[in-house]
């Protein structure tokens, strides 16, 4: 049954997932080409100076890509459920509501983590070739909060989509943008090194909120 449920989620999100992966690869390719051009134009010494002495981060253009992917994945997955109240069909499946909702949310979270892991792998492979381990490690600490923001954006957008009341949706949206600010307090490379573990908790902490929205739908709350 769970496999069938996962198939349904895949059917909704397949083209988006492929598109998001390709868009990420295109964005990374653009960044690599831009960096390669800088290597040739200003020389490696200057780049070294920019990274080490001036604490500049070369992949800043990636900043809002993960939350954008998170938002869109949640929309792709949950808008079809809420249009015509199709979620009634899902909740009528012979499984507990908790299992149904958490399987759907778990699928989205896992899919997002796979897409992000592939992007990060490409990025870190590139970085490993051209930069020393210390710079690559610092890059991970700078990128991680943004990618975790992508997971949090997914969890909170799911919460918004599954919410049956428009008034509450607006309130949830404000909470979402306020919470996502936590991931963008500074661009300084490696600034989140000491708190990254606590930041990881946020998306997993907000993920069950979607289940609470479904419970509100179940008792018939509407505007």
């Amino acid at each position: 049954m769970i496999r069938a449920l996962l198939f349904k989620e895949w059917k909704k999100t397949k083209w988006f997932a492929i598109g998001a992966f390709i868009a990420g690869v295109i964005l990374l390719t653009y960044l690599f080409l831009k960096l390669g051009r800088s290597f040739r134009m200003v020389g490696l010494e200057h780049l070294w100076d920019v990274i080490v002495n001036r604490d500049q981060f070369l992949f800043r253009d990636l900043k809002f890509f993960p939350p954008a992917v998170g938002f869109c994945l949640a929309l792709a997955q949950f808008v079809p459920e809420m249009v015509q109240k199709r979620i009634k069909l899902s909740l009528h499946l012979p499984l507990s509501n908790r299992k149904i909702v958490f399987t759907m949310l778990g699928f989205g979270m896992t899919l997002l983590m796979i897409i992000f892991a592939m992007h990060l792998l490409i990025l870190l492979t590139f970085s490993g070739i051209y930069f020393p381990v210390e710079i690559t490690a610092s890059m991970i600490y700078t990128l991680l909060p943004w990618y975790i923001a992508g997971l949090a954006a997914y969890a909170m957008m799911s919460w918004i989509c599954l919410e049956p009341s428009w008034k509450r949706r607006i309130f949830n949206t404000l909470i979402m943008f306020a919470s996502l600010q936590l991931f963008y307090l500074t661009d300084f490379p490696g600034a989140y090194s000491f708190v990254v573990v606590s930041v990881v908790i946020i998306p997993f902490y907000v993920l069950p909120f979607g289940y609470f929205s479904v419970q509100r739908f179940k008792v018939g709350i509407q505007d």
Binding site: F7, K11, K12, R86, L89
Partner: peptide, 26 residues
């Protein structure tokens, strides 16, 4: 319990053989 929702709502992103396979698992 078999349920037909007003407007014959179903998973419109599936085709007729996919939806049959999907429900058969349950």
């Amino acid at each position: 319990v078999g349920l037909l929702i007003e407007g014959h709502v179903q998973y419109s992103f599936m085709n007729i053989s996919e939806i049959e396979k999907f429900y058969s698992a349950f």
